[in-house]
Every structure is written in C-alpha cells, then in structure tokens.
Amino acid sequence: MSAAAAELRTVALLSRRALNEIVRVPGAAIPGVLAPTIFMLGLTAAFGNLILLPGFGTDDYMSFLVPVSMMQGAGFSGAATGVNLARDIEQGWFDRLLASPASRRSLLAGLVVSASLRALLPASFVFCVGLAFGVTWPGLLGLAIAIPVVMLTAAVASCWGAMIALRFKSQSAAPLMQSAMFMLVLFTPSYAPQELLTGWLQDVARYNPLSQTLEAIRQGFIGDVSWAETWPGLLAVAALAAVLSVFALRGMQRMAD
C-alpha cells in the first residue's frame, strides 16, 4: 500500500470512529441539532418584523436566518469534535494514536473530515424545518454552494477545537471551543444586513472572515447566486481552516515531543 493510500485509510478509519458516536450515542448529537433550530424559530418569532426596516432586502426573515443556523450547527459539530479529542487525550487514547506510525496530518484530517460530515446533520435538519415553515428554496446551485461552505465552516471549528483541546488537554475547555465559534458565527451580519447593523457590531462584522462566508451561503436563500458573492466566502473560510490547521498540527507536534 502506498503512503498516500495508507494516510487516506487512516483518515477514513478515524472519521468513521468519530461518526460512529452519532449512531452509538445519538443523545450526544441532539443539542447540536436542537440548539440552531430553536434559535432559528425563536429569533424569527422575536425579530421577524425587522424585515420592515427600509433596506432589509428580503421579505422573509427565516430565509435570512436559515444560513446562520446552518453555520451555527457546523460550529457546534466542530466544537463537539474538539471536546471528543479532549476526552481522548484525558483517557490516554490519543497518546496511543501519537505513538502509532500514522502521520500527524492524517490524525487531524480524520477529525476535520468527521466534523465536516457531522455538520450535515444539523444543516439538513435546520434546512428541512425551514422549508416546512416556508423558507425560500435556494435552488440547486445555491445548495451546491451552501453545503461545501457549511462543511468548511465545520472544518474551521474542528481545527479550533483541536487547537484548544491540545493546549488544555481537558474537556473543561469545552466552553472556550463553543463560545468562540458562537461569537465568530453570530458576530456577522447574522440578524440584519451589514448596513443595518449598529455600533461596534458593524465594525466587527465588516472584518469578521465568516461574514463573507455567511453571505455566500445566504445568497441563494434571499436572491440570485453569483460567483462574485461566492468566492470571497469560500476563500475566507478556506484560509481560516488552513491557518487554524497549522496551529492544530503544531499543537500535536508539541504534545508528541
């Protein structure tokens, strides 16, 4: 077996192990699915009339909010992967993985791939609930853009989670993994378009890389899909994933030393 094939096999096995948890402990996946759904329904009920503001740009608030909840689900999925890694470190399982001949990058890739696949669960659920409540169909092209971008968002969250898990080596760091992703996803034009945000949030959202990512997912839900709206979001989330994966790999290297 070539080295590349062996690495791919390691990634596949580690991803499968992580995904098995959904089947074996389904209760663990429920909060990550339920929370974004409750937020979507609750925020629509509370802030739904914001669409009456001049310049809002859509007549359906839930369509505006579905992409936020899909990203929230991705954030929770990635953070959950980080928590699971912290558990593996606490129990000594990760030490055995580090001592194995598997490369560091395949260990990280296993986590990232599992988080990206796991993110499809809350995203699909939120999307279906949204459709049941009359959310605009984003079109096949809109979905074809939204799905990989959501998966990349989960990759960012899992790299962040891994970084924190490798730094603190404890599940008690879970709030740090979750709250950072919570802020990164919500401190974007999540509640209203960029021009309608006020005060400090307008500035933070302008420079938050996930703002572009959110706009890329959102475009099909509130209007037409264009490459001009897509590439900045793809670039931002891919760059963020690349930078955080470097830090996570360094964390693994430090732990192995």
Partner: peptide
C-alpha cells in the same frame, strides 16, 4: 458563563444586530 457571560454576549449581539428596531 451561564449567568453573566452568555447573557452579556446576547445583549451585545441583540443591541448591535437589531438596534435599528427602534425605528419600526
């Protein structure tokens, strides 16, 4: 976290995100 940090985060988010609601 649940008593001060999360409600503070929501306060910041709601105020910045939906602040123009007072014009409705």
């Amino acid at each position: 976290a649940p008593i001060l940090i999360f409600p503070s985060l929501f306060l910041a988010l709601n105020t910045g995100g939906a602040g123009r609601a007072i014009d409705l």
